[in-house]
Each structure stands twice: as structure tokens, then as C-alpha cells.
Nucleic acid binder design. Sequence first.
DNA 1: CAGTGAGCGAGCTTCCGCTTGACTT
Length: 774
Amino acid sequence: MLKNLVIVESPAKAKTIEKFLGKDYTVRSSFGHVMDLSKKNMGVDIEHDFEPKYEISADKKKLVSELKKLAKDAELVWLASDEDREGEAISWHLLNALKIKEAKSKRIVFHEITKQAILHAIENPRSIDKNLVDAQQARRVLDRLVGFELSPLLWRKVKPSLSAGRVQSVAVRLIVEREEEIKNFKSTSSFRTLADFRLKDSTAKQSFTAEYGLKFKTAEEAEKFLKTQIGANYKVNSVTRKPAKKSPAAPFTTSTLQQEASRKLGFSVANTMRIAQRLYESGLITYMRTDSLNLSEVAIQAAKEEIENTFGKEYIKTRRYTTKNKSAQEAHEAIRPTYMNRTGAGETREEQRLYELIWKRTIASQMSDAKLEKTVVEISSDKAEKNFIAQGEVLKFDGFLKVYIEGSDDENGEVKDGILPDLHTSDILELLQMVSKERFTKHPPRYTEASLVRKLEELGIGRPSTYAPTISTIQKRGYVVKETREGEKRNLRRFILKENEVKESKVTENTGAEKAKLFPTDIGVLVTHFLFEYFPDIMDYNFTANVEKEFDEIAEGRKAWNEMIKRFYGGFHEKVEDTLKNAGKYSGEKLLGQDPKTGKNIYVKIGRFGPMVQMGDTDSEEKPVFAGLQKGQSIETLTLEDALKLFSFPKNIGEYEGEPVTVAIGRFGPYVKHKNLFYSIKKDKIPATLTLDEAIQIIEEKREVERNKIIKVFAEDEKVKVLNGRYGAYLVIDKQNYKIPKGTDPTTLTLEDCYEISKDPKNMPKKRSFKRKK
DNA sequence: CAGTGAGCGAGCTTCCGCTTGACTT
């Protein structure tokens, strides 16, 4: 007979805790939520106080029946899911799904996985907090209602298979709006003047840079100013020294880890989470989905010891960080190494780099401030109205900077405060050179995955467990694309005063280059405008924050959850019905002009399959002709000329091997068609001007690849082939693919071996979850 | 994978938040 069954959310956690608790305790994991709303009829009975219809999630059925058996045998079941809204609901669902009597169960919580914390929790059990569960139900039902009423509305009014939701739609809005800001941004330029000085009549050769206190609007002004400085006298007017300090950043949360890994290691948000998961499962770091800045007392002590041993006592300054984030639930610790004295860990290079980042950030957070001395020197010219200013910074004590400097998203490379020579008031200076260079103002930066996460967190939208999935959803729906774009060269003007002469020189700089930035698509823009027009409340950046306040009131027992939902749903549902009935199709249609040959109208708009051009009117007798836009083309920038090119396909460009060769554009981009076979045209060729020779080359290249694909064929049975694919060798029998078991050399397979392989169901490829219909 | 955009009107898509594997042609 089982004495104690403890259920936590994560299996890695279960393993650790089992060690602390000894053999009277069996620790299992629920793998997160085990129940969810049914997908049928909203999963909510709207007529009867929004009663939720829960069911055991399909992928948890087996697990639940196992847990149920264990729970039945156990004397006592300890529900140890996380101490937050979702965790409370998980415990409540477990109670229901496992059919545990409440008297036989105890609810316990802990914020850190230390023996002390767990034993303390066991000694202080409580019962399930139904108010907190209700707050979760309100959250869950609200998200379901919003998502499952708005999405079908989009299917009807914009395009099938789209989606909308409290979190994703606002995420897309941020990107769409940022793009609009960028489009409306007018870049202006000004001239910034930097002078290099040196102490006159001194043996010290060290030069330093100072900036003139005025920027010039035009090249003429800049040039004129430099000319006035020929032969001018410079001296130090004043020197101000001020002590300053820098403090370390707090330990990592999910969001800050994603940002730093993006800035410093170039990891995507999903990649960071995948690698962190590996480190967590290997027991190297604490839980990676957290919004807490807390470190356990044990961890702080270990960090202190590590700092003392490696850097010395003067580098220690233990600190407790408190979150400013109102939506934080702090069910876990901050992300930190499990063992502070382990300076490196991880199997792959990626794991090692992420681990090192976490180690450094955590250690630095418990180190002393860096002490600096900031110096500001004002320099006057006897021929200029304003002064020149030089700023210097000297590090007096490095403190935490010894191990960690936080990254920055700032793209404007400012002149770094360097080290200044020892200067005093009235010192006479010698001018080495003076440069006035044009600088353009920069548009607000596009979001990266990580900076979008930061913004969402700032707005209190989404949770640590959903940042990465949200980013992937909005890309999967085609609202947003992550792209790297090359910049353009831009000419700048620059004037140099040197040896009593002012010369102009041209400089070019690269501008507008973007690396892995998020751009809205036509569909993203259209859906955002649609939702913003009809559902401004839901698209409001404060919507989540406002409903969170109500969830808190529910959690405190001051409000009934279904009352809150009822109040929200009334107006919302009415608006949905009204839009369904009264709003027309939302296609973003735009008249581009007329076809010069036929005079027919040419439109660009979003159709069932995405952006397209249309020649002729829908209500005319003749059916209009359609053509889809190509990758990289956009409704917003498409010209009449572009549209006419799209209508020129399919185009016959000649004959090869006695059969016609045509060029066309399909769902997957431009292609060459020959003898009923398709050959896609790569990006480096422009389909509109593709010659027959180029087409033949494409055909022959593909044939060559096809030939190399075959590893083995059998004369006895032509249907059986061993082929080389993207993921290595595989077997095909009569159009059905099979995996070849690991450790088998594909070149040695006999026909009999192949039949054997095809009989084992283990070798069947997994069915794709969604198959596109014709 | 491969040219769709329609007049039958099937049957499908979809939310957020909590967890890991499965496994790609």
C-alpha cells in the first residue's frame, strides 16, 4: 500500500523532490494541466451561467488513469502544483479527474526546490483555494469566448483559418503599428561636430575628443563654422569630476533570458527555451518559465561563497530583487544555476553558452557595484559661441563588471566615454582636427522576437510559458514574418578641418539593414485593422491589465467569476453578431488602374488564399481573371506594372525535347512546367524574363538531383526503392514511405529486408496532424 | 505541394496557459 502520493507539474521536479522526501513518498507529475474546456459548443454553457464543460485532455488520458490508480491506493494525496492561478486550477482538476476525496488530499506549495522548503510545505498544508480556481476559470472562459467568437468572424469576413485572441491580436497590433510609425517617419539630418584635442606644450601625447555644443542643420552652416575655427585658440574652461556607480541587473526571468540570449548569442526565443529546457532536465538550472526575481537563501549563500573564492570578499554584495511587474505570479525562483560553483556545464556548444550566460548573470547579481568617476570638461574657443564638451569615464572599481555586462538594444552607436588625460582649468589646448559629419535620425526600431516579448511583458500580456508559442503562432498564421533585409547605401557629407584647411569628403553608410526583425504581412495589417475597427476594446493595450484586476478581485473572493464573464460577454457577443450581419467582406481592395490593352479595372486585395490581383469587375458579365501575389510583394506597394506582369503567366517560352515549356506562378512561387513535371524557380532568377536556356538548365539540374536520390532499386519489384532524403535514407514501396531502423546500412538492404521493414508498424511515418484537402 | 478566387454549401479551421516528447521526406 502506497503511503503518500505527491503530484507536481513537472517530471524533472518530481525526480528532485522524491530524493528529498524519502521512500514513504511517491512523487509523480501531472505534466501541466490535465483538463481543459471541450472544443464543442465553446466548451461553455452560455445559457447557464457560463458553466464550463471540462474534459480530460486527449494526450493526458493515459496519464490520468495511471495517476488515478496510484491515488486510489494511496493513504494521502499531496497536490503540489505551482502556487499560482493555473497551479491551483491544476490541483482542483486533479481532484476531479482522479476522483480523490477531499479529505484524503492536502494542498501544498513551495517556491523553491530545496529540502527545507519542501519539508516546510509538508508541515503546512492547506486546502484548495476555490476563489483562486474561480479566477482561473474566469481567465480560461474569457480567452475561449474571445478566441472562439472572433476567429470564426475572421473566417467569414477576411479569410479562412485565421485566428484572433486576447494575446496574439495585440502582439500583431504592436508590429503593425510600429511599421506604420516607420512608414510615416521622416528622417532629418544634422551635422555633429567633433574635435580632437591635445594638451599644448606637454610631453603627454594623449589626445581626446570633444563635441561642439551645437548641431548644424545644413552643410553650409557646418562648413562655415569649421572655417571660423581656422587658427582659433582653445582652452579648458572647467573640469568637473563626479563619482558614479553602476549596479548589476537582476537575475534572469524567462523574458530577460530570452532578450539577453537574443542580443548576446543570437538565439531565437524558441531556441532559447528549447536549450534551457535541456539544461533544466539535466538538473543544471532551475525552472526556466518564471517571472520571479527571487533567489533562494541557499542559492544566495552559494553565490556569495563562489564570489569570495573566485574574486575576493570586496566583490560580494548580496541583494534581494523585487519585481515591479504587476502581473507577476512568482511561483518559482528566478532562473539560476543549480550549483553556483559549477562555472560551466552543458553538452552542446549552445547549452554551454546559455549556461554560462545564466551563471554570469546570477553571480553578477550578488556582486558589488562598479564605481566610476565621470569627468566633464568644457573647452572654449575664442572664435565660437558655444563650448566643446568632453566626457570621460574612469573605472575605479570594477565590481560586478568583472563578470557580466548587460546587453543593449540601442542601435545608435554613441561616442563612448573614454579616458581623458589629466586636465585642469586654463590649460591651453591644441586642435588636431575637427570633423563635422552629417547624421540622419533613425526611425523607431522594428521588433525582434525578444523585444516583442519584452513589450508584451511590460503590458502584462501573456505569461512566461506562452511568450515563445505566441511568437510562433503569429508567424504561423501569416500575420508576421521574421526577415533579414539588406540595407541601402546612403551618401553623407563630411567636412574636415585639418592643418588650417577645410575639406569636404563624401562618405557612404549602410542604412535600413535589418536582421531577424518582425515585419507585418498584408494579412496581418488587414486583420489588425478589422479587429481594431470593430473590437477596439479587445485590441486595447490595457485590456489584459483591466481584466487582470477583475481576476484579482475574484481571487480575493470579492466578485463572482461568472458575473464578471456575463458583464463582459453581453456587449461583446452583441458586437460579434452585429458585425457578422452588417459588415461586408473585408478584403482591403484597392483599384490600381486599368489594363492598357482592354481598359479593364485592375484591383489588388486579399482573397481566400491570400493577397492577389484581379482584372475585371466581379459584377461584370465576363468572369474576372485572378493571380496571386508573389513572395515579397505587398498590397501596399504593388504597382500597376507589377500587376500586369503577374497576369502575363502562364507563359509559353519554347520547346524542349519536343514538349512545350511554360513558366507560371503557383501557390509555392514561380515554377517551370515541362512534360507535366514542375520545377521551382529559385529566387535568383526573375520569372518574367526567364529564357528557354535558363529553363532547360533548371530542368536538368533537378534531374541530376533526382538521379542522386536513388540509393537502391530492385529489378524484381520496381515499386520498392531506397532513396536519399532530407533526413537521410528512407524506403518507398508503392508511394508509401517507411523509416529505416537506426543502425541499418541502407546500401546493404535486400528486397526481403525491405518487405520486413514495411511490415513493422514502428517504421510507418507518423501521420501529419493536418492534411490539406484538394 | 502546383494555377484556387464561384452559383451546391460538406466539414474544417480557432483561444490561452500548464507541461513534455515525437519526429519530420
